[in-house]
Amino acid sequence: MFQFLGATECILLAVMSLDRYIAICKPLRYAAIMHQRHCILLVSMAWLSGLSNSLLLSSLTIQLPLCGNNQVDDFLCEVPVMIKMSCVDTTFNVAMLSIVASFYVLVLLSFILVSYGFIVATVLGIQSSDGKKKAFNTCSSHVIVVSLFYGPVISMYVQPSATSTQEKNKLMSLFYSLVTPMLNPFIYTLRNKDMKGAIRRLLVSLYHWGREQT
């Protein structure tokens, strides 16, 4: 389930970058390109791809003998951690993990960066300052989530294991499995005026409550 949801989010973030690219770079064609059927197809492909990734890596990893070592030195049964616990040759498993990680992390992240390259070029060509501000506000929440998600994932799945400690891997695993999903609802609602007003009222009430207590 963890692999399933993680891989699906990688693709959904790439789909969201495509959505923002079309909205900013091709606004007049947005409704024709991102129609409901197309959106359903993209989301379905993301979920099916995530499920395929989960079934592939989990089925390969669960077959590895652990030779009595059943203490997982991590918060989760991560695939790289389980591979390290095995007492047989894991060259094939490591190769498959590298191939899958290269697609879900490097290829999709490159697609996101290229999309934002075109977005930045288009925004810089906008004469109105209000138009530039609106365009950047449209992308700000997505950029924050991409940074919070892909940074720890790259550290865990892409960089050579010899250059990372187990404690660092634990921290990265905890970050992208717990911290990032917990922050997502707040990040995506920062542009919502009602949400901003509710947060402002909450902070003011907490401030007055604190003063009353002192």
Rank of each mutant, 00 (worst) to 15 (best):
residue 176 Y to I: 04
residue 7 A to N: 12
residue 151 G to W: 00
residue 211 R to M: 09
residue 72 V to C: 03
residue 159 Q to N: 10
residue 97 L to K: 04
residue 63 Q to S: 12
residue 61 T to I: 00
residue 71 Q to G: 05
residue 209 W to R: 15
residue 205 S to R: 13
residue 208 H to W: 14
residue 48 L to Y: 04
residue 62 I to M: 14
residue 4 F to C: 05
residue 178 L to K: 14
residue 115 S to W: 01
residue 147 S to I: 06
residue 17 S to M: 00
residue 80 P to K: 04
residue 152 P to D: 00
residue 214 T to H: 11
residue 191 R to A: 15
residue 184 N to C: 11
residue 203 L to E: 05
residue 171 L to Y: 12
residue 73 D to W: 01
residue 189 T to C: 13
residue 193 K to Q: 15
residue 176 Y to Q: 00
residue 153 V to C: 10
residue 200 R to K: 14
residue 48 L to R: 10
residue 22 I to D: 07
residue 133 K to R: 03
residue 198 A to H: 13
residue 142 H to I: 03
residue 15 V to P: 12
residue 204 V to A: 09
residue 10 C to P: 11
residue 107 V to R: 13
residue 196 K to A: 10
residue 15 V to H: 12
residue 59 S to E: 09
residue 99 I to L: 14
residue 93 N to R: 02
residue 61 T to D: 05
residue 194 D to L: 13
residue 135 A to M: 01
residue 195 M to H: 14
residue 21 Y to D: 04
residue 195 M to N: 15
residue 207 Y to G: 11
residue 61 T to L: 02
residue 80 P to N: 04
residue 7 A to C: 11
residue 148 L to Q: 02
residue 175 F to C: 03
residue 169 N to A: 06
residue 1 M to C: 11
residue 21 Y to L: 11
residue 14 A to N: 07
residue 78 E to G: 06
residue 89 D to R: 03
residue 166 Q to W: 06
residue 201 R to F: 07
residue 55 L to D: 14
residue 30 Y to C: 09
residue 172 M to A: 11
residue 116 Y to F: 09
residue 123 V to A: 08
residue 62 I to K: 15
residue 162 A to M: 15
residue 56 L to V: 15
residue 80 P to L: 03
residue 58 S to H: 14
residue 54 S to V: 08
residue 27 P to T: 00
residue 72 V to S: 00
residue 53 N to P: 10
residue 161 S to K: 13
residue 173 S to V: 02
residue 14 A to T: 08
residue 122 T to A: 14
residue 54 S to F: 13
residue 64 L to C: 04
residue 97 L to N: 06
residue 101 A to E: 01
residue 16 M to A: 15
residue 114 V to A: 11
residue 53 N to V: 09
residue 214 T to R: 13
residue 179 V to A: 03
residue 47 W to K: 15
residue 145 V to R: 06
residue 200 R to Y: 15
residue 140 S to C: 08
residue 12 L to F: 05
residue 16 M to C: 11
residue 182 M to S: 13
residue 159 Q to P: 04
residue 94 V to I: 07
residue 206 L to F: 08
residue 54 S to Q: 15
residue 49 S to D: 11
residue 115 S to V: 04
residue 144 I to H: 08
residue 127 Q to R: 12
residue 36 Q to S: 12
residue 177 S to D: 01
residue 19 D to R: 09
residue 53 N to E: 10
residue 204 V to Q: 10
residue 142 H to G: 06
residue 80 P to H: 01
residue 112 I to Y: 02
residue 43 V to M: 06
residue 165 T to L: 05
residue 64 L to R: 04
residue 142 H to T: 05
residue 85 M to F: 00
residue 158 V to L: 03
residue 33 I to K: 07
residue 137 N to P: 07
residue 46 A to L: 02
residue 166 Q to N: 14
residue 166 Q to F: 02
residue 70 N to F: 00
residue 206 L to R: 14
residue 147 S to N: 07
residue 104 Y to G: 13
residue 123 V to P: 09
residue 54 S to I: 08
residue 154 I to P: 09
residue 60 L to E: 03
residue 152 P to M: 02
residue 183 L to E: 01
residue 79 V to A: 02
residue 128 S to W: 04
residue 147 S to V: 08
residue 51 L to P: 10
residue 85 M to E: 03
residue 89 D to S: 01
residue 46 A to C: 00
residue 37 R to I: 02
residue 18 L to G: 13
residue 193 K to M: 14
